[in-house]
């Protein structure tokens, strides 16, 4: 199994309000299975609580294959599959029998916010009128090396309660993150503004990731698998930039001078 082929077997794409797991028509099922496991390991925090659409395209799944996918998604990673998208009648029937919702055709979604695939990461602004400004990031210009972790996503605007921004790579927010808002990145997080919601840096296991904010007053901070919460008493939070990182197994906040 060549590495190249396998990385195309499964793609995970993030849209406005759901995430699509797209299974290639050409790869063998064992490739799909291996790649799915691999990708989900790295992206499990993105998929938590987000409706996921499984897009199997023209592929016709056998009952065994269907069960296998269901096991990986539901049992192993606890992913909420909101619907399956398929062009195969057999797969459709299988899905219906198993109580899954079916979407027939692949729908072109207008708003692509982030595309989570380990091979290519690019932020495209398809519909410029909608939503807040998403700064376009051409990965040809912005590419110090091919390492994913150096990909930074810039978001301008307030992340409000109930809103969520997730990105593979670093996340730079110019604006406030309000209580109830969530920002998640596999790399570092920088907030040029007030961070009062939840921030998760190093999602996927990078415990050397850092969270930096001009005003760091979060509900909760997570770095890799470490979780730190705001003290119940009102902390003496100054109006100076601070940095959170993991030291000796716990999240430590330091003033940046």
């Amino acid at each position: 199994m060549s590495r190249r082929a396998s990385s195309k077997a499964v793609e995970i794409k993030g849209y406005e309000d759901n995430i699509n797991i797209i299974v290639s028509n050409d790869a063998s099922f064992s490739e799909v299975e291996a790649e799915l496991l691999n990708k989900l390991m790295g992206a499990k925090d993105f998929l938590k609580g987000v409706p996921v659409i499984l897009d199997v395209g023209n592929r016709s799944l056998s009952p065994q294959q269907f069960v296998k996918l269901n096991q990986i998604l539901n049992d192993r990673f606890n992913i909420m599959v909101s619907a399956i998208r398929t062009n195969s009648e057999q797969t459709r029937r299988l899905a219906v029998v198993n109580g899954w919702k079916v979407e027939h055709r692949r729908q072109q979604r207008k708003k692509i916010i982030e595309k989570l695939s380990s091979s290519k990461i690019r932020n495209r602004k398809v519909n410029p009128v909608k939503k807040n400004v998403i700064v376009e990031q051409d990965d040809k210009k912005l590419k110090p090396n091919s390492d994913d972790k150096n990909d930074t996503y810039l978001y301008r605007g307030t992340i409000r309660s109930g809103q969520r921004k997730a990105h593979v790579g670093n996340l730079l927010i110019i604006g406030d993150v309000n209580p109830g808002g969530e920002i998640i990145a596999t790399g570092d997080i920088v907030v040029i503004g007030r961070l009062r919601g939840m921030a998760h840096a190093g999602a996927g296991g990078n415990s050397s990731a850092e969270i930096i904010a001009l005003h760091l007053q979060p509900m909760q901070l997570r770095i890799a698998d470490y979780i730190g919460r705001a003290p119940d008493q009102d902390p003496e939070s100054g109006s100076y930039p601070e940095k959170a990182s993991v030291e000796n197994g716990s999240i430590v906040i330091q003033r940046i001078k």
């Binding site: 909608k130 939503k131 807040n132 409000r160 309660s161 109930g162 309000n178 209580p179 109830g180």
Partner: peptide, 15 residues
């Protein structure tokens, strides 16, 4: 205020 913040976000999504 928390709920108002949520509503403002939803309104923005609705242009």
């Amino acid at each position: 205020i928390r709920d108002a913040d949520r509503i403002i976000g939803l309104l923005q999504a609705d242009e």
